[in-house]
Design a protein around this nucleic acid. Sequence first.
DNA 1: TGGGTGTTTATGGGCGTCAATGGAAGCTGT
DNA 2: ACAGCTTCCATTGACGCCCATAAACACCCA
Lengths: 158, 158
Amino acid sequence: MDRFVSNTTSRLDAKGRVSVPASFRSVLGRDGFDGLYCYPTLDQAAIDAGGHALLAEIDSLIGRFPPYSQEREELRVALYGRSATLKIDGEGRVMLTEELKSHAGIVDSVAFVGLGHKFQMWEPERFRAHLAKATATVRALTRRLGSHSPDSDPGARE
Amino acid sequence: MDRFVSNTTSRLDAKGRVSVPASFRSVLGRDGFDGLYCYPTLDQAAIDAGGHALLAEIDSLIGRFPPYSQEREELRVALYGRSATLKIDGEGRVMLTEELKSHAGIVDSVAFVGLGHKFQMWEPERFRAHLAKATATVRALTRRLGSHSPDSDPGARE
DNA sequence: TGGGTGTTTATGGGCGTCAATGGAAGCTGT
DNA sequence: ACAGCTTCCATTGACGCCCATAAACACCCA
């Protein structure tokens, strides 16, 4: 597998460290990035994280704007200026910065959510709410797409 | 990592010295530039800083204007003429010149902000305001680009 | 199919190293 | 000789790195 999938929750220990799920670490290893590149998700109370694939996405986003334009400079500040490269210790743990934690409302536990080329970290309760909302949106979407969705099985709730 | 990312704040000591963050120093070391190349940011109350990569950017910016044009000469003055190469002492500290400090409004503490190929130094409070503005702009931008999931809530619940 | 066993992951803590900071001593030019 | 820098040293506290235990899972074999 070469992308981040599934989601798990783990707790911060007394030193503020948290284990990155093993499956995510193996994707990062394949990506070749040393450490974990993170920044506050722009429009959500979450943290975006990944490796080279994520950096490439950021570069392409910035590259869409003309050099020296104000938009470009502000993107730089928002993306580079707020990001952090976290070190992953021998046991696969990272320490989140204060800024990242406060943006996501993370206190003592983190939900890791795979999104393909990157993953997100959420405060678990917020993620539950976010997921419920997203699920509702998706239901409406598939319904609108015509053919009733293949797996819209009632009763499949948390 | 080969670029400046993240942001940290540190204080000037009694002699006016300030520690450049270790991660920035390691990028500078890789860049090969001895010291820290600085100049007042043209359109902001901040200081631009970096090494060879920054010098290269300046050259390319100046090169966009026709030789001997007035714009070109004025850019030269603004970028070369106001710049300073600060020495980095054994402990990774620099001393800002009076001109740099007054341009950025820096008194007793400095926010270091990574922007990829260069970084900036801000008076911390001003940086907070600047970051808030940039973040707002970028949110609007990314929404317009549709680069994020359509997360608009049709039926907000919770 | 169930029990047992071995491997991998998660988690907790100890210790050494390095970064950040403060201060003192040596230079240099005026 | 003095002021302003620069270089050097000392302290503290955070963080990186290592080991030790425990829990989860997978695998194998009876």
